[in-house]
Design a protein around this nucleic acid. Structure first.
Length: 153
DNA sequence: GCCAACGTTGGC
DNA sequence: GCCAACGTTGGC
C-alpha cells in the first residue's frame, strides 16, 4: 500500500540557496529552521512528500520549483556546531531541538511570482498569503499544491 | 503569567 | 533601507 503524499511549501532566500542551487547539488539538508511551528511541520514530513520551493526575500518572491523530501526528519546538525550561525547552545544530542529533512529537486517551475500566486482562487486561504505571515515551512492542501504547480507548468 | 523590549522575517 | 508583523526573552 502506498502511503499518502503530503504537500508542503518551504521558503528559502535565493541569494543564500535557491532552487537552481538545489538542482546543482541534487540533495540538501534543509537547515536553519529555528521556529517551533515550522519545526513541528518538518517533524510531520515523510519521505516522498512533495514541497513547493519558494523564494523569499527575492525580487520578486515566488514559487521556483518542486522538491521531494528524501529523508525522514532528523536532527539538524548545525544546531550542534558552534561555528554555525544556526548553533543552539541549548540543544543536546540526547534532546535535539531542531530537525531538518533532506530535499532533492523534482521539477523546475516556470517561476510563479507572488503577485500571480495572490490571484489564484485556490490560494485565498493559504497561509503563505496571509498578512504578516512569516512561517518558513507550511503544509499545503492538495488543491493548493496543484494550483501552484499548474500556474508554473 | 504578563508584557515591554528586542530580534527576525519578508514584502515593498 | 523601511517597517509591519510576529516570535522570543527576561524582568517582575
Amino acid at each position: 500500500m502506498v502511503g499518502l503524499v503530503a504537500y508542503w511549501l518551504m521558503k528559502s532566500e535565493p541569494d543564500v540557496f535557491g532552487y537552481e542551487d538545489l538542482v546543482r547539488v541534487k540533495r540538501e539538508g534543509w537547515d536553519g529552521v529555528r521556529n517551533y511551528q515550522a519545526r513541528n511541520f518538518i517533524r510531520q514530513m515523510s519521505k516522498g512528500d512533495l514541497a513547493i520551493f519558494y523564494h523569499s526575500n527575492a525580487t520578486p518572491p515566488g514559487a521556483a520549483g518542486i522538491c521531494r523530501i528524501v529523508s525522514r526528519p532528523e536532527p539538524d546538525p548545525t544546531q550542534f556546531d558552534p561555528t554555525s550561525k544556526y548553533y543552539d547552545p541549548k540543544s543536546t544530542a540526547a534532546e535535539p531541538r531542531w530537525d531538518w529533512v533532506v530535499v532533492a529537486p523534482k521539477k523546475r517551475l516556470n517561476f510563479v511570482p507572488l503577485d500571480t500566486l495572490r490571484e489564484i482562487p485556490e490560494l485565498v486561504d493559504c497561509r503563505l498569503l496571509a498578512k504578516g505571515n512569516r512561517l518558513s515551512v507550511m503544509p499545503l492542501t492538495d488543491a493548493e499544491f496543484d494550483a501552484i504547480v499548474d500556474a508554473g507548468s
